[in-house]
C-alpha cells in the first residue's frame, strides 16, 4: 500500500515536468519565428496615421452615385453569401443522405460519405475561391461557387447528424400506409429534418458572410476588393469606413439570422 502511494506521485511528477519542458521548448521555438525585433522602427508614425484615418472615416465613399462605393461592395458581399449558402444548402442534401448511417444498410456507404465530407471541410474556402477564379474568371460568381462548394463539407455533416437523430415512427407509419421509398422520404423524413436544415443553413450563412468579406482579397468579389486596394495605398480613412461597414453588416445579419433561427426551432 505504502509502496504504490510512494511510487505513483513520482512517475506522475516526472510526466508533469516532462510535458512542461516539452511545452516550453515548443513555445521557445514558436516565438523565435515571429521576428518581433523587425517591427519597432516605423510603428509609431504608421500608428498615428492609422488612428488619424480611423477617426476620420471617408464618409464620401459610402455612396457614390455611379461607381464602386461601400454600399455596392456590401451588397455584393451579402449577395455572394446568400447565393453561396443557397447553393450549398441544396447541393449538400444528397451528400447528407449519403453520409447518414440510418439511410443505407451498409456502413461502408455512409463511412465513405463521411470521409469525403471531411476532405471537403479541410480545404480552406479561399483556396477553393482561387481555383474557381481560374475557372470562371475573377468576380462574385467565383466567390459564390467557392462558398457553395466549401460549405457542403460542414452543412452536409450537420444535416446528416439531423437525419441520424430522427424518430423512426413516422417512417413506419408511412410504410404501413403503402407508401414507396420516395413517399416515405417526402412525408416522414423531410418534414422532420427541414426546420433543423434551415436553422443550420442560417448558421452557415452567418459564417459565409464573414468569409465573403475576405473573398475579395484574392479577387472573388465583394467588399474585400476595395479594401485591399485601400490598404495597398495606405488610405486609412477609407479602410476605416470599409471596416465600419463590414462590422455593421455582419452585426445586422447576425441579429436577423439569430432571430430567424429562434423562430424556426
Amino acid at each position: 500500500m505504502r509502496d504504490t502511494r510512494a511510487y505513483k506521485p513520482i512517475s506522475r511528477r516526472i510526466r508533469f515536468w516532462l510535458s512542461i519542458i516539452v511545452i516550453l521548448a515548443i513555445y521557445y521555438w514558436a516565438f523565435q519565428g515571429m521576428h518581433f525585433e523587425g517591427v519597432q522602427s516605423t510603428t509609431k508614425t504608421v500608428m498615428l496615421s492609422i488612428i488619424n484615418g480611423f477617426l476620420h472615416p471617408d464618409w464620401s465613399y459610402v455612396y457614390i452615385p455611379d461607381g464602386e462605393d461601400l454600399l455596392r461592395g456590401l451588397l455584393d458581399t451579402l449577395i455572394i453569401s446568400i447565393l453561396g449558402t443557397f447553393v450549398s444548402a441544396i447541393l449538400c442534401i444528397p451528400f447528407a443522405f449519403w453520409a447518414s448511417t440510418n439511410m443505407s444498410r451498409r456502413l461502408t456507404v455512409s463511412g465513405s460519405g463521411k470521409i469525403l465530407l471531411s476532405v471537403i471541410r479541410v480545404f480552406p474556402e479561399i483556396i477553393v475561391a482561387i481555383l474557381f477564379i481560374k475557372a470562371v474568371g475573377p468576380g462574385a460568381f467565383a466567390g459564390v461557387l467557392a462558398l457553395g462548394i466549401h460549405s457542403i463539407g460542414m452543412l452536409a455533416k450537420l444535416y446528416s447528424e439531423t437525419i441520424e437523430s430522427i424518430d423512426r415512427g413516422p417512417q413506419e407509419a408511412l410504410l404501413a400506409c403503402g407508401a414507396n421509398r420516395l413517399q416515405v422520404l417526402r412525408y416522414a423524413v423531410i418534414p422532420q429534418v427541414i426546420p433543423q436544415f434551415l436553422s443550420y443553413s442560417l448558421y452557415r450563412f452567418e459564417i459565409n458572410i464573414r468569409s465573403a468579406t475576405t473573398l475579395g482579397l484574392v479577387g472573388a468579389g465583394g467588399i474585400g476588393t476595395p479594401l485591399i486596394f485601400a490598404l495597398q495605398v495606405r488610405n486609412w480613412s477609407r479602410v476605416g469606413v470599409i471596416l465600419l461597414g463590414v462590422v455593421i453588416l455582419i452585426t445586422l445579419t447576425d441579429i436577423i439570422s439569430g432571430k430567424l433561427r429562434k423562430r424556426i426551432i
Partner: peptide
C-alpha cells in the same frame, strides 16, 4: 407512440 409527424 402515435407516429405522427410532430411538426406537421
Amino acid at each position: 407512440s402515435f407516429n405522427l409527424i410532430k411538426r406537421a
